[in-house]
Design a protein around this nucleic acid. Structure first.
Lengths: 203, 203
DNA sequence: GTCTATAGGATGATAGAC
DNA sequence: GTCTATCATCCTATAGAC
């Protein structure tokens, strides 16, 4: 079932791969169609122009990334049935599964490359990645404080202290992976951060 | 004295501005020379090809960024003559001066845009920005622990906990600035982080 | 939904006059 | 160190046959 991609999906697959290495402007329709194995004109049966390709890619990322956060409605259930260590370990694991999918790794790279040229990319960064994650964590910490599991600090400060380091560690991780360099150090830094953070803020 | 830029400097100035908005592949020699006010062929009297322009830009950034960290030889003098609050406030101020120069803001953007396409950009990120800053801070914390001013935690952990959040807050700051959006929230986050961090690790 | 053919323009870079 | 002129190639996109 893996090799039964439609032409449209093949185009997206190839485009994601090439854009993630050379950026939108650095990749031509010619290059994409050559790799897919169709003529340039055929591509326009699936996308009305080059821009629609990358827009489709970004919308796909939005959908994928939203899966890394559990719905707020389930939070009370999850938090009641796990220790804070279990909760954050599980969140970390979910995120690791997300970023370890090769396609998601590429999508993050495209976002980094395009976020000053493309407004939707910037919007995704600011809103989906930064804002939504921080807002979610703020709710988590509010609840954990109310349950007396976490020191009564500002939930928004706690969310920031937990999440901001992870964003830049992830950026470093993605760069190292691009060069096939060793990622042990940065992976350990992520784990050490999690441990240090929980030790610091636990009630 | 401000308007006596040599042709070569004018080219760099325009290239930095355009690259920071559209990326290297999104900007043509034609566009650069039009903006500078010379013919395309004249540019090749100053740079042997398009790539040499961006390489020159990255080498300039390396030089500029290195100024944000004081030399290790001066550390003992600085640390003896200031409280840890003064030391970190001053470091933060120095960095703010760096990033508030419009040209440096643009250089950071170019780095973000090009760091997967251009090896030097990736190298600057991994080595100059991540590694050198972390190594510097590790020495700082070693000394502060020896002086009994900071809790005896791993200096490398302390360096990471202090610095990694700042990197991604800076990325967010730079995106907001690009859209001329309000940066008060993220600037306050940076200050809150500094305060929280010092409160947490002070001996 | 694929192809061939082509339009109409942009691209990086060079040769050579002044 | 600037210019004019030019090259060979690449670019996105469309028209129209099958």
């Amino acid at each position: 079932m893996t090799n039964t991609l439609s032409t449209k999906d093949k185009i997206l697959d190839v485009a994601i791969d090439l854009f993630s290495q050379k950026g939108y402007s650095g990749v031509s329709i010619r290059e994409i169609t050559r790799e897919v194995g169709i003529k340039e004109s055929s591509l326009y049966n699936h996308f009305k122009n080059k821009d629609e390709i990358i827009t489709t890619i970004f919308e796909y990322f939005q959908k994928e990334f939203s899966k890394t956060l559990p719905p707020v409605e389930m939070l009370d259930h999850i938090l009641t049935n796990s220790t804070i260590e279990q909760f954050f370990d599980r969140g970390f694991e979910l995120f690791k599964e997300h970023i370890d999918k090769p396609v998601n790794e590429k999508l993050w790279r495209i976002l980094y490359i395009e976020h000053y040229r493309n407004e939707l990319a910037r919007e995704i960064f600011l809103n989906d990645i930064f804002k939504k994650t921080l807002d979610f964590l703020e709710i988590v910490f509010e609840k954990l404080i109310a349950q007396g599991k976490i020191k009564p600090l500002h939930p928004s400060l706690l969310a920031a202290e937990y999440q901001y380091p992870i964003f830049s560690m992830l950026a470093e991780y993605n760069m190292l992976r691009f060069d096939n360099k060793d990622t042990t150090t940065i992976e350990n830094r992520m784990k050490d951060h999690l441990t240090f953070f929980l030790t610091t803020v636990k009630a």
